[in-house]
Design a protein around this nucleic acid. Structure first.
Length: 553
RNA sequence: GCGCCCGUAGCUCAAUGGAUAGAGUACUAGCCUGCGAAGCUAGGUAUAUAGGUUCGAUUCCUAUCGGGCGCACCA
């Protein structure tokens, strides 16, 4: 939190300083920039703003930085600010500020990273929402990781966040699924029938056919379909639970139909003159909506009188708003990105501002076995299930791996590598630090050394003057910033990067600084406090990622 | 053809328009009879190409090349 406070204090001083300089009025409302200085600069926080201001002032950047550094005067928690070429002002945290932050972490680790200054958002995040026509496959693992970890991070920061999984259990798919299962059922009883063209060819229906009850012999395809869907939905729930992805609600599309919400939404749109008739169908004017960029209008009700999936989905999104959520985020695979413009247009039709709906489109996962690309085809039933993946690689490695990538990036997943050498996954590098510190605490206990309490931590922390110790203290101070980066990116991926960097700073400390040392109890206990802080932040960070923090490995 | 996303180290990936572009992994050589060697230390490689905007570009704009995904009265 100390960095947030510092940024805030600096911003106030800058505004004060700029007040009397009319040249600066142009950029007055903008948020001020702060950056993490590169390794060779002996500072903890950088302020590059003088580079921008110099232009407006028609002065040399370094002179502006110098003036500003003077104008800042004494700031809480930092040594006197230093101007630095070409035009930065650099801040270095004091030892007491760093110890105070260390004490703050241990006072209440579970709220470290919460932002007291934040305006709480109300966000409903919908993710995975896979069709209940087959098992979850590995792409769902990516969506589940991105969604669940984002939910956790945003909640930690202080926002109100809901998590939902939408189940598309209505429409024509159930019928086709039922026909496919019926064919498998009959095959199992020795009949020479084929799974229909366009049906679900996957092996999983063979397994399912073996579990059908005896009375299934008299079932119609629809009944097969219902039975299969219920079973698949139950599997999806199990898979998400064992993956650590939590949902507040599993929302069935059929609920909307049962409650007449689909018709009501249509009537509501018509009332507002948003929908029109053409060629026997009912349309929504999605093209030409500013900011949505859809290239054509979309059908709501087909000429056969049946509602489209799109209409039901509008009803669902309207339902989310009607339940009081301020912002909606959908996490979608890249194969659905074409759907975003029409949903934006629909949200606009509901009278909501564009920023009330946001789609996170994650790129697809490409599977490799060594050098060879594995073609995945849901139709042909060739895919790696999430279940298999987790069984092979483990949940921790899976989630950390998925969480590391920005949603925008395509990712390659090498199954051979993942299976046979999971130790190559960086998650173990981070977990190892946690286990190592736990081991140190066991040693400390044997030597009758206990870490200090919160108040004593603040005092003893000043003994941590080695560069390796200071580097860790500073890194701990950046944790809230890493969470803030996740919020602005709407992705958890800055967090694994942060944890790897923190872990990377711990080992050199460990090599150089003996922790358990009865001959120097104060220093030893100060170092135990530092270790505790690192352990807590790693545990909290991993928790947000849905990854375990083992005491033994 | 049109639209969206992506080309960074041998490989997998980072970097709100900022200073000398970072990790892991792989390769080589050293480190364990005091807290866990799943570790440390030291070695060197990268922004696809060509322009442009800017004090400053991996980041923004244009074009080209290469890859992924979309372009239904399917869901």
């Amino acid at each position: 939190m100390i960095l947030e406070e510092l940024k805030h204090a600096v911003s106030l001083r800058v505004r004060e300083w700029a007040k009397d300089q009319p040249e600066l009025a142009a950029g007055a409302g903008k948020e001020l920039p702060f950056t993490q200085p590169p390794a060779h600069v002996p500072a903890d926080l950088s302020f590059p703003w003088p580079l921008q201001a110099a232009k407006l002032l028609k002065r040399k950047p370094l002179d502006v930085a110098g003036d500003l550094a003077k104008a800042f005067g004494a700031l809480e928690g930092v040594e006197p600010p230093q101007p630095s070429p070409p035009g930065f002002v650099n801040f270095r945290l004091t030892s007491s500020a760093l110890s105070r932050n260390l004490a703050r972490i241990s006072r209440e680790p579970a709220t470290y990273g919460a932002n007291a200054r934040v305006r709480a958002r109300s966000i409903l995040i919908e993710f995975v929402s896979a069709n209940p026509t087959g098992p979850l496959h590995l792409a769902s693992g990516r969506a589940a990781t991105l969604g669940d970890s984002l939910v956790r991070v945003l909640r930690r920061i202080g926002h109100k966040v809901g998590a939902e999984y939408y189940i598309n259990d209505a429409g024509g798919r159930a019928e086709i699924l039922g026909q496919s299962l019926k064919a498998r059922h009959e095959q199992a009883r020795g009949k020479d029938v084929q799974v229909p063209e366009g049906g679900y060819q996957g092996e999983y229906l063979k397994d399912m056919a073996a579990d059908l009850p005896a009375e299934a012999a008299g079932w119609k395809p629809v009944e097969f379909g219902k039975w299969a869907m219920n079973r698949l939905i139950a599997q999806h729930k199990e898979d998400m639970a064992s993956f650590g992805a939590g949902f507040d609600r599993w929302f069935l599309e059929s609920e909307l139909h049962d409650a007449k919400a689909v018709e009501q939404t249509l009537a509501w749109l018509k009332e507002r003159k948003m929908a029109y008739e053409k060629d026997g169908a009912t349309w929504l004017g999605t093209s030409g909506v500013e900011g949505a960029d859809d290239d054509k209008d979309r059908v709501l009700v087909k000429s056969d009188g049946k509602p489209t999936y799109f209409l039901a989905d509008i009803a669902y999104h309207k339902n989310k708003f009607d339940r009081g959520w301020g912002e909606l985020i959908d996490i979608l695979g890249a194969d659905h990105h074409g759907y975003v413009p029409r949903m934006k247009a629909a949200v606009a039709a509901m009278g909501k501002p564009p920023e009330a709906f946001h789609a996170i489109v994650h790129q697809l996962v490409h599977l490799f076995k060594g050098q060879e690309a594995v073609k995945m085809s849901k139709r042909a039933g060739e895919f790696v299930t999430l279940r298999e993946l987790v069984a092979d690689v483990g949940r921790d490695a899976c989630r950390f791996f998925f969480a590391q990538r920005t949603p925008n990036a395509h990712m390659n997943f090498d199954l051979e590598l993942a299976k046979k050498r999971s130790n190559e996954n960086p998650v173990f590098y981070v977990q190892y630090v946690h286990a190592r510190i736990c081991s140190i605490f066991r040693e400390a206990q044997k030597a009758d050394l206990a870490p200090p309490d919160v108040r004593e931590t603040e005092a003893l922390g000043q003994l941590l003057t080695q560069p390796e110790e200071r580097a860790l203290l500073v890194k701990l101070a950046w944790f809230p910033d890493a969470l803030a980066a996740c919020e602005s990116a709407l992705s958890p991926h800055p967090l694994p990067t942060y944890l790897l960097e923190l872990a990377g700073l711990y080992h050199p400390f460990y090599e150089k600084c003996r922790v358990v040392d009865s001959s120097n109890k104060d220093l030893s206990r100060a170092r135990l406090a530092l270790c505790r802080g690192v352990k807590e932040v790693i545990a909290e960070g991993l928790e947000l990622l849905g990854v375990s923090a083992p005491e033994l490995m």
